[in-house]
Simulated scan of single mutants.
Amino acid sequence: MTQTKDINPILKQVLELGPTLAFFFIYLRIKDDVFVIGNTEYSGFIVSALIFVPILLVAMAILWMLTGKLSRLQIFTAFIVIFFGGLTAYFNDKRFFMMKTTLVYGTFCVLLGIGLLRGKSYLAYILNDMLPMEQEGWMILTRRLCGCFAVLAAANEYVWRTMSEEAWVKIETFGFPLALMAFLMMQFSLLQRFLIEPDADGAGKSED
């Protein structure tokens, strides 16, 4: 079995967030340029998206080599980026790359929703070791996060269909991640009463 290893948290954040920031800055640099590849003209946006794919894969490979593992979420996201990046290049249509965000958030919403219909929290399976919490707390958080992902998916559809290309890039890079982070921070604050604190003997007990 592969042994997992801890790495510097700052390096981990750089590897996880770096590819998206690289896409953002590359796009700003070449957004007004046109590139001819194989007798086909590609916009700066599409070239930025195509450069983003190998950057993401290299970052994930480094993360895997340093930690010995990749989460299912990371693997799924990489697959979606590669798939929609390929469609973007093949059809020379930026809309495919923009739609990937809708699919990612939409898939998370559906998966959490399936768990809720079965009376389960799939979040608890993934995060309970890192964040011990009572089942009632996990169910509340799952319902709220399911709704959050639905809103983000709908918001992405609205943004790319009604706003400018540059506006979508900025919102995709900063707006959606910050909104999700703020939402999660607020939820964990509201769900403090469900957190489980270890007692002196190492057993867990609910915090009143």
Rank of each mutant, 00 (worst) to 15 (best):
Thr67Phe: 04
Arg95Lys: 15
Ile55Arg: 00
Ile80Ala: 11
Thr101Phe: 13
Gly106Val: 01
Ala124Trp: 07
Pro54Gly: 00
Tyr125Pro: 05
Leu123Ala: 06
Leu66Gly: 02
Leu70Phe: 05
Val81Phe: 13
Thr102His: 15
Ile82Gly: 07
Leu50Thr: 04
Gln135Asn: 04
Gly106Trp: 07
Gln135His: 12
Glu134Pro: 13
Gly68Asp: 05
Leu117Asn: 00
Ala59Asn: 06
Ile62Cys: 02
Leu56Asp: 00
Ala61Tyr: 06
Tyr90Lys: 11
Leu57Thr: 00
Val104His: 10
Leu63Lys: 08
Glu136Gln: 12
Pro132His: 08
Asn128His: 13
Leu66Tyr: 10
Thr88Lys: 03
Ile114Lys: 02
Met133Glu: 02
Ser121Gly: 04
Lys100Ile: 07
Tyr125Lys: 14
Met130Pro: 01
Asn92Val: 11
Lys100Ser: 14
Phe97Glu: 12
Leu63Trp: 04
Ser71Cys: 01
Leu73Val: 14
Ala124Asp: 10
Val110Ser: 04
Arg95Ala: 14
Tyr122Cys: 04
Tyr125Ser: 14
Glu134Met: 12
Ile62Phe: 03
Ser71Asn: 10
Phe91Tyr: 15
Gly86Leu: 15
Leu103Met: 15
Thr67Cys: 08
Leu87Pro: 09
Ile80Pro: 01
Gly68Phe: 07
Leu56Ile: 01
Asn128Phe: 07
Val104Glu: 07
Glu134Thr: 13
Ala49Leu: 02
Val104Tyr: 12
Ile114Pro: 05
Pro54Ala: 03
Gly85Asp: 03
Glu136Cys: 02
Gln135Ser: 11
Gly68Thr: 03
Cys109Arg: 06
Gly68Ala: 05
Met130His: 06
